[in-house]
Amino acid sequence: MGRDNGPRVRVPEQRAPERAAVEEAGLYFSLLGPVRARRGEESLPSGSPQQRALLAALLLRGGRTATAAELIDAIWGEDPPSQALAAVRTYASRLRKTLGPLTLASDSGGYAMRIGPEALDLTVAQDRASDAEKARASGDRCRARTLLNEALGRQAEALAVYADTRRLLAEELGVDPRPELATLQQRILRADEELARPVDEPAPASAPVLPAQLPATVPDFTGRSSFVRELGDRLATAEGSVMAVSALAGIGGVGKT
Rank of each mutant, 00 (worst) to 15 (best):
residue 4 D to I: 07
residue 5 N to F: 01
residue 7 P to V: 10
residue 10 R to M: 06
residue 11 V to R: 05
residue 12 P to G: 02
residue 13 E to Q: 11
residue 13 E to S: 03
residue 16 A to S: 09
residue 21 A to G: 15
residue 24 E to K: 04
residue 25 A to H: 00
residue 26 G to C: 01
residue 29 F to Y: 06
residue 30 S to Q: 10
residue 31 L to M: 12
residue 32 L to W: 00
residue 33 G to P: 01
residue 41 E to H: 07
residue 43 S to I: 00
residue 48 S to K: 12
residue 48 S to M: 08
residue 48 S to G: 14
residue 53 A to G: 07
residue 56 A to R: 15
residue 59 L to N: 13
residue 60 L to R: 15
residue 61 R to M: 02
residue 61 R to F: 02
residue 62 G to V: 07
residue 63 G to R: 13
residue 63 G to K: 14
residue 64 R to P: 00
residue 66 A to D: 08
residue 67 T to G: 14
residue 68 A to G: 07
residue 72 I to M: 07
residue 72 I to D: 06
residue 74 A to R: 13
residue 80 P to I: 05
residue 80 P to M: 03
residue 82 S to Y: 03
residue 83 Q to D: 14
residue 85 L to E: 13
residue 89 R to M: 01
residue 91 Y to A: 04
residue 92 A to L: 06
residue 92 A to M: 06
residue 95 L to R: 04
residue 95 L to Q: 05
residue 97 K to Y: 01
residue 102 L to Y: 02
residue 103 T to S: 15
residue 103 T to R: 06
residue 109 G to Y: 02
residue 110 G to H: 05
residue 111 Y to N: 03
residue 112 A to S: 12
residue 114 R to C: 06
residue 114 R to Y: 08
residue 123 T to P: 08
residue 123 T to Q: 14
residue 124 V to A: 07
residue 125 A to V: 02
residue 126 Q to S: 06
residue 129 A to Y: 01
residue 129 A to V: 06
residue 129 A to G: 03
residue 132 A to G: 07
residue 132 A to N: 10
residue 135 A to E: 09
residue 136 R to T: 01
residue 137 A to P: 04
residue 140 D to L: 01
residue 145 R to M: 08
residue 150 E to N: 05
residue 154 R to Q: 13
residue 156 A to P: 03
residue 157 E to A: 15
residue 163 A to T: 10
residue 165 T to K: 08
residue 166 R to A: 15
residue 171 E to T: 13
residue 173 L to I: 04
residue 174 G to W: 02
residue 175 V to W: 01
residue 175 V to T: 15
residue 176 D to E: 15
residue 179 P to T: 14
residue 185 Q to R: 15
residue 188 I to F: 12
residue 189 L to W: 11
residue 190 R to H: 09
residue 192 D to W: 04
residue 196 A to D: 14
residue 201 E to I: 05
residue 202 P to Q: 07
residue 203 A to D: 11
residue 205 A to E: 15
residue 207 A to S: 05
residue 212 A to L: 04
residue 213 Q to Y: 00
residue 214 L to W: 12
residue 217 T to P: 10
residue 218 V to H: 08
residue 218 V to L: 05
residue 221 F to K: 09
residue 225 S to H: 11
residue 226 S to V: 13
residue 227 F to V: 14
residue 231 L to Y: 06
residue 234 R to P: 03
residue 234 R to N: 06
residue 235 L to W: 10
residue 238 A to D: 05
residue 238 A to H: 08
residue 245 V to M: 09
residue 248 L to M: 11
residue 250 G to E: 05
residue 251 I to L: 06
residue 252 G to Q: 02
residue 252 G to M: 03
